[in-house]
Every structure is written in C-alpha cells, then in structure tokens.
Write a protein that binds this DNA or RNA. Structure first.
Lengths: 192, 192
DNA sequence: TTGATTCTGAAACGATTGTTTCAGAATTGT
DNA sequence: ACAATTCTGAAACAATCGTTTCAGAATCAA
C-alpha cells in the first residue's frame, strides 16, 4: 500500500475561504491560496481541484457553518418572537464586527450573475435560509406574537432583504449606529 | 497648431461603463475595453488614463445619469407620496428588466471593500441619493401623507436598503413576481 | 507647402494568471 | 528491505494581464 493524504481538507478549505472572503474570487490568485492554505500546488490540484472547484467547496462550507450556527442559536430561544429578535440583532452585530464583509453577498454580486453553477448553489442555499426563517415567522404568527395577515415567506424574504441592504450600507459608510438603528426599525416593523 | 481630439469622451465612457457593468471590474480586461470603446489603446491612456481612472469616470457617469433621471421623474409627480410610489415601483420594474444587474451594487461588494477611492465616491453618491429621498419623505410627512413619528432619513435608508435586497434576490432567483410583491409590501409598509 | 503637433496602430514590455509536469522524497503494507 | 503509492517542491507551461513605447499617418495654423 501507499502513503495516505495527510492534511485535513476542511481545515485547508477554511483557510482558502478566508482569502476569497477578503479579496473576492477574481482578485484572489492561486498563489494567494497556496500561500494561505500552506499546501502544495500539486496537492491542491490533486485532492481538491482547480480554482473554481475550490471556491465551490468554500462557499459550501461557508453556508453550512452559518446555517448550523443559526439553527443552534434559534433552538436556544424560548419563543419564536424571541428567536427572530435574537437572529436579527445578532446579524446586525455580526455585520459591524466582521471587517471582511459577507462572502455570500460578494459572491452574489461578483460571481453569480455570470456563473450558472455558482448562482444555482447560492440560490438553493438562499432558499434553505428563507424557508427556515419562514418557519420561525409562521410559528410566531401561530403563537399570536405577530400579525398573521401577511405571508410568512414574504416576511422572511423581507428580513433577508434587509440584511443585504445593511451589509452594503456598512461597506460604504462603516457606521455601526446606522446598522443598529435599522435593525431596531426592522424589529419594530415586523412586530407591528 | 496641431490636430485635436476627435472622439466624444462621454460616448466612449458609456461604452466602457457597459462592459464594467456586465462583467465587473476585475473580470474586465483592457482588451475588452478597447474593443467595446472602439478607441485606440494609446488614445485611451493618453486622454482618459489607466483602468482605474476609466472606471472612476464610469461610475461617476453611472451615478450622474441615474440621479438625473430620478430627479426628472420625481418632478413630474404631483404629490410626495405619489413620487415615492413611482420611484419604488419603477425601481422594481428596472431591476427585473435590466439583465446586467446593478453596477452600483457590483462595485459596492466587489471593489469598495478594498479600494478606498472607490468606496469614498460610492459613499458620497449614496449619501446624495439618500438625502434626496429623505427630502421627499419629509415632504410626504409634512403634507400628512405619511406617519411622521419616524425619522425621514431612516425611512429613506429603509427604502434604499430594500432596493439592495431586491437586486440580490433577482440575481439569485430571477423571479419578477417576487420583486413585485416585495415592492408592493414596501409601499404598503411605509404608508402605514 | 511647410513645420508643428496629435492621433493611430501595432508591437513589445515585464509581470502575473491558472494549470501541468515530473523527478525525487516520504510513507505505507507486505 | 521491499515494491507500491502518494506527497512535495520547483520548474515550466501557454495565455493573458495592464501598461508603455514609437514610428508613421493625420490634421492643424501659417
């Protein structure tokens, strides 16, 4: 038998993800990646693949991690309303504390428009997120914590839409207070 | 005396803008630009400058044109409320009809995070837009067409934030109905 | 027409892009 | 120790990147 793979792939993917996250897809070179991953050029191509395949694994890992943290966070809350408030205010906190911006947004606007493969996986991931949020909204409606004349899916979409806007605002202005205000405005708004 | 510049600079800038708009900054090569602009490589560098300077002129032109159209559109409406409704629903229509996406958003997420010069001009442009929207909101409040317990600037920010979210949604899902619904939801929301 | 100036086209610049190749070192089961 | 297999490092690949250079064509005022 022969020698077996020694490096931890997930660990390397995470390092690559951070580079893409910081610089964006096109501005990241393979040189940047091998430097950051501390992996051999050959090993990278043999085990993971080319730049595009590596990127796909990165955004996959990015979404899985985020989704996992979200579910864990929600499960700790007692009511659906409290869960929504927690998710929204935490999102606002995350935006102002993460100097790299959001990899999902960068990918949506830089790559997704012209890359069908990336767009499809981003679209699917987004659907999963929206659906999850919609179930919480629906629960809040069922429990009488929220106005239920509105569609739960639309409300979830409204929340997600707001997140996107905040991220752009913070890139341009870097004003934490503005983000905080907008998150409070959103919370006030969805609970009538 | 000598020969003078023959090509119309603004006209050329617009052609370059369309390339950046479609492909994004990093994915656009100088070759793409000279091809589209139908201008000489040397003339480009002599009269306009390098890639970055050309891009700056493009986003400047992009914003000026958009702002001009916006003001003209608003001036044609009879009331502030009607102006807001018109701006919002037209924005929704524009998003679903423009297959290139939005150059402003692409720039915000791809370039602005790591390019101070671009970020500053984008930030300033955004401020101008928000301020303009805020004046209309304020007028609607003063005229009793809107609930005036909320801050006009925050309401303007809320509207702009929504636009950003719709743009991302449309890139990923390409669903015109969804955009339409969200725009109707926004209109319903801001007029209580 | 002449001389001055500017535009034009193409070639060339060095640097970097993503990717492949390959000989040798390292590690494995037998 | 052995042969089998895989990892490693560096070099090389062709292609493209943004930018510069420059001789000649084109245009101007006199």
């Amino acid at each position: 038998m022969a020698r077996c793979v020694e490096f931890n792939e997930v660990e390397k993917i995470e390092k690559a993800m951070n580079v893409f996250w910081e610089k964006g897809y096109n501005a990241t070179s393979m040189q940047d990646l091998v430097d950051a991953m501390q992996i051999n050029r050959s090993s990278l191509y043999n085990t993971i693949g080319d730049k595009h395949q590596l990127f796909m694994k990165c955004i996959g890992n990015y979404f899985d991690t985020a989704m996992c943290e979200l579910k864990e966070k929600v499960s700790k809350e007692t009511s659906a309303k409290q869960a929504l408030i927690k998710v929204i205010s935490d999102k606002a906190d995350w935006i102002v504390s993460c100097d790299k911006g959001c990899l999902g947004m960068k990918t949506s606007f830089e790559i997704a428009p012209e890359d069908t493969i990336v767009r499809n996986v981003m679209s699917k991931n987004n659907d999963i997120f929206i659906e999850f949020m919609a179930t919480i909204v629906q629960k809040a409606m069922d429990d009488g914590e929220m106005d239920d004349t509105e569609d739960a899916a639309l409300m979830a979409e409204y929340i997600a839409t707001s997140f996107t806007g905040w991220k752009q605002s913070y890139i341009l202005h870097g004003n934490p207070i503005k983000i905080k205000k907008m998150s409070e405005f959103l919370i006030k708004n969805i609970f009538k």
